[in-house]
Amino acid sequence: MTTTVHPTGTDSPRPSSGRRSPLSAIAHLRELPVLLALVALILVTWLINPLFLAPQGVKDILLNATIVIILAAGQAIVIITRNVDLSVGSILGLVAFGTGSLFVAVPGIPIIVVILAGMLFGAVLGAINGLLVTLAKVPALVITLGTLYIFRGLNNAWAGGTQFFADDRPQEFGNLSVDTVLGFPLITLIAIVVVVIVAVFMSGTRSGRDLYAIGSDPDAARVFGVPVTRRVLFAFVTNGVLAGLAGVLYTSRFNSVGATTGTGLELDVVAAAVVGGVAIFGGSGSVIGAALGALLLTTITGALTAVRVDKFWQQAIVGLLILAAIVIDRIAAVRTARRLRVSESRDV
């Protein structure tokens, strides 16, 4: 009954009407609510405390958001196929610890090799999830809940009490999250490039569009000739690659990585995707939206500190935001359904 909404926000082509005007297309963007909320939040905070938008303040917000943005983009791909990956926090932890070990084991290893190795490691972990989900035909929620524990346990067994600190890594690697270009930290630029690539893939390629079809109705997609198993596996592997990248960048951003790195991140990431307009039952939403959702959720923390709201309120407000996002999504869906009914009855 739900309609497939293109990530650009226009409705599926309807026989009764032509293309909508650009203005109304913007007004129906799924990402609009989260974008408005983000702009309003930044404006209000800036009016109360102008220091909020000082270069250092902006840099802090972007640095804090980078990791979650990458994870949320990957999670969006998986959720769009009507699956979910709860193990991303554990994947990030394993890759982050792996990155630390790599720098110690191979002194002078080029940074690009480390990044690629981290992404490859993530891909392997993502493939484990994907294979279990597609071959055993068991819901992703259960499988990835299991691998959440297993990956975390492996991380614990591997790391034990060991921690790697910033001194164990070359200076240039740490500088990735210190140096800025036009006010943007380098790791944030990496994240933006990644999100743009994935967004173009999702909206512009056949296999990207297939993922939406699978999420809207897996059986119909199969009948239509979409290679569902291969595409879903691909979504999990891509998510693993992105979680791996996030793991490497986490190591650059934060001082220490150890056995518990990334614990509890999974629900934040799913929350960011949901706030960004990705429907939890698949078929709708976009990677850009998920990235904006992640940015919104991390900006709130900074904003509350800037306007001197008790820091204890922060999590409760995040919860309210998630609920608001779902309610807005629901209202939009009801309105679309009603409009479709009206246009269908006119056609008769």
Partner: peptide, 30 residues
């Protein structure tokens, strides 16, 4: 939210997971 408004429970309870834990923080702080 789930039964009357008709929202998916997975999404709703991720939201209230954050909300209730947040309220716990508001109530007792650290």
């Amino acid at each position: 939210l789930v039964a009357v408004v008709g929202l998916p429970s997975l999404a709703v309870t991720i939201g209230t997971l954050a909300l209730f834990r947040g309220l716990a923080l508001v109530v007792i702080g650290d």
